[in-house]
Simulated assay, not measured.
Amino acid sequence: MGGLTIIKHVRVFDGESIHGPKTAVIEGSRIGNDALADDPDPSAVEVVDGSGCTLLPGLIDCHVHILDEAQLAACASYGVTTVCDMACVPLEKYVKLRAAKGPTTWLSSSLPAYEENSRHGMLFKLARVTPDHAVHNTEEAAKFVQDRVDEEVDYIKIIADFPGHEQAVLDRIQVEAKKHGKMTVAHTAQYHSFERGVQADFDILTHVPSDKALDNDIIGKMVSQKTVAVPTLTMMQVMADSWVLWLVSWILPSFGRRNFQASLDSVTMMRDAGVPIVAGTDANNSGIFSIVPGKSLHHELELLVRAGLTPLEALRSATSLAAQHFNLPDRGRISPGLRADLALVEGNPDEDIAATARILKVWSNGEEATIPAQNQRASLGSCAVM
């Protein structure tokens, strides 16, 4: 028998519901069958007492902007073993992160589709992205998608805010992405951009408006089109609390003021209507709205619960639902044969979602990840290596 890790007396969230206390098994890089825990060779086994703890699938953050390989690796220490990057420039950085070997899997869109004279267009100019990378018309939309496919991106990202692309350009990007079998993710941080994203039938809309709550008409279309939402409530809260944006909106009323309650209300309505909601934070190192990758996902789960999700629904949003909607069939659940991305936490996160932050151990692809002292609980309590 090969080396095993056996976690005993642990409550297990399998991606859907809670089971146990029971025994869970890691066999190499995969989740093993529980029967492997019967009479194992003690010389080839590590046993962990999971009393008082819950075992979760490795968490997935569906909206991040990773700075470098070190920051990517650090995500695992917070139990986040997969991240979905929503804009990575320049190309050299994309190539480097794509090749990174570490405990956190990195997915990316590379460069998103943006309009040169939009707000994001100005930001990309500051980042020294030349205007020839922007999408100006429907013909360039086809080339943009082909370029991203050539880079082997995991999905196509589009900035749908207005002022920005004409609706015809957004519609064309969706058509071209489908030709190549690529999923689409659209930035929709305003009510009007959400409307545009729904009209284009993008697969996933990331951010939820803070200028105006969504209405039944938009949410009804999302349900009928099976649109998925990544609300990024962490970012919407940071922006609503920003004195910089408040000052800009006071000087330029057309800029609009942020109302975090509108964002919460939109999530409540989407949840009640049955729109799939997956967790994402918009973690970044902008220096203006900086959000720590990995750590911030736990706050996002708390905000989703505040918006009306049950703790179990919030857990699914960062595990099984995230894996399902980002086409990751090998993770997000605890089942024999799947990738052994796991997080052991103290307490019952199905009752108190804040327990997800009480990280004790993390495994990525079966290998135990390093957890710096400042990230780990001061005491392991009743969870200990035997």
Rank of each mutant, 00 (worst) to 15 (best):
K125H: 12
V145W: 08
L170S: 06
N137M: 07
D132T: 02
G121E: 10
H120S: 08
Q146V: 01
K143I: 14
V185W: 05
L170P: 08
Q146M: 04
D147R: 15
A186R: 12
G121T: 11
F124N: 11
R172T: 06
I158Y: 01
K179A: 10
A186E: 08
Y155K: 04
K157G: 01
V129T: 07
Q167Y: 00
P163I: 12
F144M: 02
V175G: 01
H120G: 01
D171M: 01
M122N: 13
K143A: 15
E152F: 00
H187E: 09
A168H: 08
A168S: 14
E151H: 07
K182V: 03
R148C: 08
D132I: 00
D147C: 14
N117Q: 12
E116V: 11
L126H: 15
N117D: 14
K178A: 14
L126C: 14
V149E: 02
D154G: 05
H165E: 01
I159E: 03
H136G: 01
E152C: 01
D171F: 03
T138K: 03
V175L: 12
V149S: 07
D150I: 01
M122G: 15
S118K: 05
H187C: 13
A141K: 08
R119L: 12
K179M: 09
R119C: 07
V153I: 14
E151K: 13
D150G: 02
K178W: 11
F124Q: 12
